[in-house]
Structure formats: structure tokens, C-alpha cells
């Protein structure tokens, strides 16, 4: 199943991942092989492969339009909602190919949660925002169950103390940073295995950003997190591994320290030293 064909410029990650303790079998949550994405005729992603370990943060960096979001959206089959998009290759989540013929994308998305660039709470109350997922998946047997899930999720998202007196206030009435944490709570509430974040802080001020980064660091203990970010310092702060994309190719993937201190590829070097992008 492992594919050793190396695209021009793409470094096969399984060959260059010495960071984790050797000797033990590595617990990869997500394994992608030969993933290519097309929007109509245009290819946006070229045969990308990557392994993402559980209980850690993987950061995707790279210049705008290089395919980070496109790749991220493959992990929960979000690209299926775009009529022109086609995905080739295979992606295993917990060993199961989510692009397999018998897989319902809706079920994939319950296991792989997503937080978007712009906070997008539903125009409902804070409680209803968080309760939305559990309700449609029937996760709560009783009203008490539901309340417990909501409170726990809000607590985990670090939002509970700020909103506990106004759970029935509108979610859209919160500040930008609070809205984003509400979206994280909403995602956590369906107990996903993976949380995808597409530039979750790009619409937030520095203080709100710091809170989210702190939260990501805590969530890492229980989830596999993949985050797209434009902010190199952020990648360095929150992630354990980093993947650098360029023009639809995965150029280099390694431990975050390695990528930032000692990048192997010239393009990675140029990017992190700010020479382009």
C-alpha cells in the first residue's frame, strides 16, 4: 500500500520522518497516498503523500494558492461539496480508506471535524450551536446528556467561563475569537478523531489568536490536529511536524524544528526566510 514513487520535488515523508522515537510502531492517524485533486481541468494537487501521527499537531505551510486548503479538505471529503472538484488517490483515517466505494462522506465528516478560516457560528443560540452536531447524530440520550456534552465541549474549547451565563444568547453575538472557539467547541461536541483547522486565526486579533493557540496545544493531548497557517511563527509555536507545499506539490515534511532550523529543500528555505510567498 505504501507508494514510493516520488513526484518531482516531493519528498516522500515516510522516508524522511526520523523524529518519532524509533523502535516502537508509529501510530499514524492519517495516511495519504498519491492524492491528486482537480478543479475541472485544472490540477491543484499533484500526487501528495503524507503520514500524520495521532495526538500531535501537523502544520501545513506554503504560499497562497499552493493547495494547502485543498489538501486539508480531502481529509473530511469536504471537496465533495464542490461540484467541479475531483480527488484521486487514497486517504486512510485510522486505517480505513475514506475514499473507498462504500464510504459515506457524511460519516467521514462526523469523525473528522473542521474549523474554518472565518468563524461561522450558526445564527442560533450558543447552546444550540454546540448541540447541533450531537443532535443530528443522536449522541445524547436525554436532555441532561446533551447539556453535559455542550458544557464539556465549551469547557474544552476554553469558552465555558466566558459564556456560561448566556448559553441562550446568539452565537453570532460573540467576539471573533469567541466565535472561533465556539466553532471549535461545536466540532469537539461530536467527538471527532481528527480536527482540521484552515487558518483558524487569520481573522482574529493577536490576543484571540494566542488563546486559540493555547487551546490547540491542550487539544493535542486528545486529538490529531491538522492546521493550515500563513503565520510561520504560529506553525513553529503550535506544531510538532510541518509540511511545506509549493504549487500543488508537497515539497518537504519533517519535524517542525527540522523544517525551521534545517530545511533540506531550497524552496522551503526561501519560503521560511521570507524570500517569497
Amino acid at each position: 500500500m505504501v507508494d514510493f514513487s516520488i513526484e518531482p520535488g516531493a519528498l516522500n515523508s515516510s522516508l524522511a520522518a526520523p523524529a518519532l522515537p524509533t523502535g516502537q510502531p508509529v501510530d499514524y492517524k492519517i495516511t495519504a497516498r498519491n492524492v491528486s485533486v482537480f478543479y475541472g481541468e485544472k490540477q491543484a494537487l499533484f500526487s501528495v503523500g503524507i503520514d500524520i501521527p495521532d495526538r500531535s499537531v501537523m502544520a501545513f505551510i506554503g504560499p497562497s494558492g499552493c493547495g494547502k486548503s485543498t489538501f486539508l479538505r480531502c481529509f473530511n471529503r469536504m471537496n465533495d461539496t464542490i461540484a467541479s472538484a475531483r480527488v484521486k488517490g487514497e486517504i486512510l483515517v485510522q486505517g480505513k480508506n475514506i475514499y473507498g466505494p462504500d464510504v459515506d462522506p457524511v460519516q467521514v465528516r462526523a469523525r473528522v471535524g473542521m474549523v474554518f478560516q472565518k468563524p461561522n457560528p450558526f445564527p442560533k443560540t450558543i447552546f444550540e450551536n454546540v448541540a447541533y452536531g450531537p443532535r443530528i447524530h443522536g449522541l445524547a440520550k436525554s436532555k441532561g446528556d446533551l447539556e453535559e456534552i455542550v458544557v464539556k465541549s465549551l469547557q474544552r474549547a476554553g469558552l465555558f467561563n466566558e459564556v456560561k451565563d448566556r448559553l441562550d444568547g446568539e452565537g453570532t453575538g460573540l467576539s471573533g475569537g469567541q466565535q472561533q472557539r465556539l466553532c471549535i467547541a461545536r466540532a469537539i461536541a461530536v467527538s471527532p478523531e481528527v480536527i482540521l483547522m484552515d487558518e483558524p486565526c487569520s481573522a482574529l486579533d493577536p490576543i484571540a489568536t494566542a488563546k486559540i493557540e493555547e487551546l490547540i496545544d491542550e487539544l493535542r493531548e486528545n486529538y490529531c490536529i491538522v492546521i493550515v497557517t500563513h503565520n510561520m511563527q504560529q506553525a513553529a509555536r503550535v506544531s510538532q511536524r510541518t509540511a511545506f507545499f509549493h504549487l500543488g506539490y508537497l515539497v518537504e515534511e519533517d519535524t517542525t524544528d527540522q523544517i525551521f532550523m534545517n530545511p533540506k529543500d531550497k524552496r522551503t528555505q526561501d519560503y521560511i526566510t521570507g524570500r517569497f510567498g
Binding site: R109, F116, N120, G133
Partner: peptide, 11 residues
């Protein structure tokens, strides 16, 4: 974005 938010939760 609202629709995507909902799809993203498995709706």
C-alpha cells in the same frame, strides 16, 4: 460558510 460549517459536522 454556514452550509460548510454544517457539512463539516457530518450533517
Amino acid at each position: 460558510a454556514l452550509r460548510e460549517g454544517s457539512y463539516g459536522l457530518g450533517a
